Amino acid sequence: METALAELHSQFDIDGYIEALPRHVLGLPRSNAPPRYQVSRFPLLKPYNGFTGIERRRGGHLAGWLLAAGCIRLASKCNICGSSGPLSLHGDVYYDISRDPTLCQPCHRAIHLRFYRWDEWRKVVDASAVTGREWFAQIPPHSIDIAQHLRDRWGWHAADLERSPICPFPDAIAEVLPNNMLPHPNL
């Protein structure tokens, strides 16, 4: 079983998948950018795409701050079905928040439930994909260890979201980032 799963992973083009994800253009922070990351009162999320609960929380902190500071904006429509809302960011590559797609609630739910309801997920894909090369059409029915792939390339520096070698921030953002991000055990 492990051999079959390892072969599925080796056949999936993680770099091609990441490149196909929509990219947010980073803008300058507003003068009233929040001085701190919002602290969550909820328990850590389960691992996803190889990212630990702590890494997902850190990514959520940064994404929330970038939105609140005006550095990124949600797309006006869901990046899968084109619905106008309600919309939120979906973390797929927690080491590169600029690659978080904007999703409506039904598509966001479907993407997370795909491991258990693959046929329902494929209906969403079939109804929304035009070319079949869209990022969401590439998602396999098995988990993707994007985190390990990026750590293999960048080392643990990949997890340093505020000084990311994957998506470096312009000085105007880097200089005003808050200093209360949840610590990462490997940084």
Rank of each mutant, 00 (worst) to 15 (best):
C107W: 01
G53F: 13
W121H: 06
A33H: 11
L87W: 02
P101G: 07
T52A: 06
A159E: 10
R151H: 02
F42S: 15
L87K: 04
V176T: 14
A4T: 14
G132M: 05
D160R: 08
R57V: 02
P29T: 03
A174T: 07
E2Q: 08
E175F: 00
D119F: 01
D96F: 01
Y48N: 13
P29H: 02
L66M: 11
I166E: 09
G85V: 01
L67Q: 03
S88V: 06
N186I: 09
G16L: 04
A4H: 07
A20Y: 06
N49T: 10
I97K: 10
K123F: 06
A174K: 14
D152I: 01
L89C: 10
P170M: 08
F51D: 05
Y116G: 02
C81T: 06
N32V: 10
Y17A: 02
P141G: 15
R117M: 14
F136K: 03
P168D: 05
L28Q: 13
Y48R: 15
A159C: 11
K77Y: 08
L187I: 13
A4I: 09
T131L: 14
Q148H: 12
G53D: 14
T3P: 00
P140R: 12
D171H: 11
L62S: 06
T52K: 08
A129L: 09
G64F: 05
L66E: 09
L28F: 05
D13E: 06
W118A: 12
R36A: 10
I72C: 01
P106D: 13
F51R: 07
L45E: 13
E134D: 11
Y48P: 07
W156I: 12
H61D: 09
C104A: 07
Q148L: 03
Y95A: 05
R23Q: 14
P178Y: 13
C167D: 14
L161C: 03
S83M: 05
F115W: 13
T3Q: 13
V125I: 12
A63Q: 04
I144E: 10
H112V: 05
M1V: 10
R109N: 11
R163L: 00
A110P: 04
R163I: 02
Y116C: 02
A6Y: 07
A110M: 12
H9L: 04
P22V: 08
S40L: 09
W65Q: 10
L26A: 06
A110W: 01
S76H: 04
V39A: 12
F115L: 08
S83A: 15
S164K: 08
A63T: 01
S143Q: 13
C104H: 03
A33F: 10
I18C: 06
L5I: 08
L26W: 04
A159N: 08
R163E: 12
A174Q: 14
T3A: 13
L87M: 03
I139K: 11
S98E: 02
P140I: 15
R122C: 09
Y37K: 03
V124I: 09
W121S: 08
S10C: 06
D92A: 05
K46L: 11
R122V: 12
M1W: 00
T3I: 07
R153C: 03
H149Y: 07
M1C: 08
L182Y: 09
